[in-house]
Amino acid sequence: MKPSLAVIFLTLFSGSGFGLVALLALDNDFRIGGGFAPIMTAILMGCGLVLVTIGMISSTAHLANPKNAWRAFTRWRSSWLSREGVFAMVFYPFAIADAGWVFFTDDTHGALALLLSNAAAVLGLATIFSQGMIYACLRTIRQWHTPLVPANFYALGFAVGAAILAAARIVTGGPDRALASMAVGLLLIAAVLKAIYYFWIGKPSGTTIQTATGFNRGTVRLLDQGHTFGTFLTREFSNCLNRTRARRLRIAVFMVGFAGPVALLAADLQHSIGLWAITAPVLALLGVGIERFLFFAEAQHVVNLYHGRMPASLPKMPEFMRRKAPSAVPLVAHYDKG
């Protein structure tokens, strides 16, 4: 798939924003690390709103005909993309009301404050799920058609959100042990889930150029794709990373997105790192940004089979696992027309 910046920013920033809002509500519910002061709660809620808004605005850049964007709220009964939009829009009034209420009444633990913040949290989490399902429901792209996708979206949203909360606490001073530990834990969970995903997407799918053309008993090779220059299909779907570059980017995801922030926050548990704490969420966001680029660049749509293209960038599964794979048909029939 073509990695489009608009969609990368949408999922990256809004996912992080929703993760931040959910953890902020949780933190004030259970007073983890003493909970946040009203002014900090309002600022962090505002921060979450800014992140979500950056995501939502950048998503409109992906539309070729944005004047009809309002119609995207109408098909929530069948479309995950529509559900995402609806949940995100319902999220706004609760999040804004909570930030305003907390700011003007200095009350973070009253019934109304908790109700508003938790409602915003739940709606944000529903939006992350819808966002994951936009990709996970597509049977045409096997790297996306897995429950690991929404699971990863949650894990990464929580990890970045927790890093922001921990950094905010460290910078403003106060009991930071609980929040920093929570962020470290969530970053590690996200890293493990992402590793499982990378391990899993090398699995061969049952769809090959043979099932695509119906000639199941022999080799099928593309002679001519029938057009002299690229088409919408080749521009949108033919993007391929070479394997070395993909591996390097994966290492970057783990170093920048997970190891870096974890090391910083762990260092803070020893003695305070002060303003340097801000680099933890920034690194996490950068790492997840690279992760999101890979998420699109490594996805291979089955229509590529008709163009004789098969994923060259995809890592192969380890041999011992591949033997158990359901498909006996070789994954790559022919790959000679790049």
Partner: peptide, 15 residues
């Protein structure tokens, strides 16, 4: 009504 989000083309296996 179309807003040009490309999502349907992602869902179509036949291009």
């Amino acid at each position: 009504k179309c807003m040009g989000c490309n999502y349907c083309s992602w869902a179509c296996p036949y291009g």
